[in-house]
């Protein structure tokens, strides 16, 4: 690791100002950044690292007015073992518990998990070996290289200096699908955004956050999604691994096809540059399964297939479509099953 200036930010304002200056990056738990610094993956080595954990008041879990609220600096371990989260959003606790390793969960935060950079091995190759589109380079190396873990729903186009670029790296964040399925809202220093709209693809960025803008709070509103939400993770290893696919299914809010009934949310991670909403599957269920009791094996299977609608996989990652179909089918069938005594 190279030398850099280190600032322990005392306030959100101080951190924001520091991050607006060139060559500065933010660190909270360090789960993403430290590896990137050690491997020297950035086109320019950061001159300043701004520590956010020194900012007071951003590490909390509270239940207020029916909403679950989490400070952006809350660690994954705290979320996983919180009785409040366990009671009001058990799927979020499960997702937090499945991330990374026990030791890293003690330091890494929900904010960092949502803001992490892509896990693409071309992007992450040490010493900035591949000057890829996500670093402002000309091309996405995974498009023609080894893309077994990459997007099955096409690439994300984005503006970069020099013109339009595309990238097929996926968002593998552990918490994004579950928060989107629960219709979470994210508060930043300047705005409030629906969780789904928080994610974007840009040069050295996976979110819509602008320079100096910080994520401060995650709120899960009382729409019923959190209570029904399920989380399913599929990874090659049981620990210390990012999910190949993770998905969340929840029911809440108002079903447009069945007034008075909740609507379906399905969000899948690891399959697209940003968390993927399985709209066709949601619509199928909204129409045919106003209640979980309406789920039949055939409908669960059809929903799984519908969740892959629009996908065009590479030869090396077509297995992900099979996984999407199977995992959604199985989760739906689990939701339809009567609760165990």
């Amino acid at each position: 690791m190279r030398p850099f200036n280190h600032i322990n930010a005392a306030s959100i304002a101080e951190a924001g100002e520091a991050l607006k200056k060139g060559g500065a990056v933010a660190v909270a738990g360090g789960g993403d950044l430290l590896g990137a610094l050690k491997d020297n993956i950035f086109p320019e080595y950061p001159r300043t690292v701004v520590n956010l954990k020194s900012i007071p008041g951003l590490n909390y879990i509270k239940f207020e007015d029916g909403a679950l609220k989490l400070g952006a600096l809350t660690t994954l371990a705290d979320i996983a073992r919180s009785p409040i989260v366990g009671e009001h959003a058990p799927a979020l606790a499960a997702a937090a518990k499945s991330a990374s390793s026990p030791a890293l969960r003690e330091t890494t935060t929900i904010g960092g998990n949502l803001c992490q950079l892509p896990r693409c091995w071309y992007f992450r190759k040490l010493n900035n070996r591949f000057d890829c589109a996500r670093k402002g380079g000309e091309r996405c190396f995974a498009l023609t290289g080894d893309n077994r873990y990459h997007s099955v729903f096409g690439g994300a186009g984005f503006e970069a200096p020099g013109g339009q670029r595309a990238c097929v790296a996926v968002n593998q964040g552990e918490l994004a699908p579950v928060l989107i399925a629960m219709a979470a809202r994210l508060k930043t220093t300047t705005r409030e955004i629906e969780a789904f709209n928080f994610f974007d693809v840009g040069v050295l960025s996976s979110t819509v956050l602008e320079a100096g803008e910080l994520l401060t709070e995650i709120e899960i509103p009382p729409l019923g999604f959190a209570e029904t939400c399920r989380y399913r993770r599929f990874a090659f290893r049981k620990s210390i691994d990012f999910p190949i696919i993770n998905l969340s299914i929840a029911r809440g809010g108002e079903n447009p096809n069945s007034p008075g009934k909740p609507r379906w949310h399905i969000c899948i991670g690891g399959v697209a540059p940003t968390p993927h909403i399985a709209k066709a599957a949601e619509e199928l269920l909204n129409v045919n399964a106003p209640s979980a009791a309406d789920l039949t094996p055939e409908l669960a299977q059809a929903a799984g297939v519908a969740a892959t609608e629009g996908a065009r996989a590479f030869e090396s990652n077509a297995y992900k479509l099979q996984l999407i179909k199977t995992l959604i089918k199985r989760e739906l069938l689990a939701m339809s099953a009567p609760p165990a005594d």
Binding site: T308, E309, G310, A311, E315, S316, L321, Q322
Partner: peptide, 15 residues
Amino acid sequence: DRVLKALGKCEREGG
């Protein structure tokens, strides 16, 4: 992924 491929369960088109 290899097991699924060997079993012929790797459709590239969704839906």
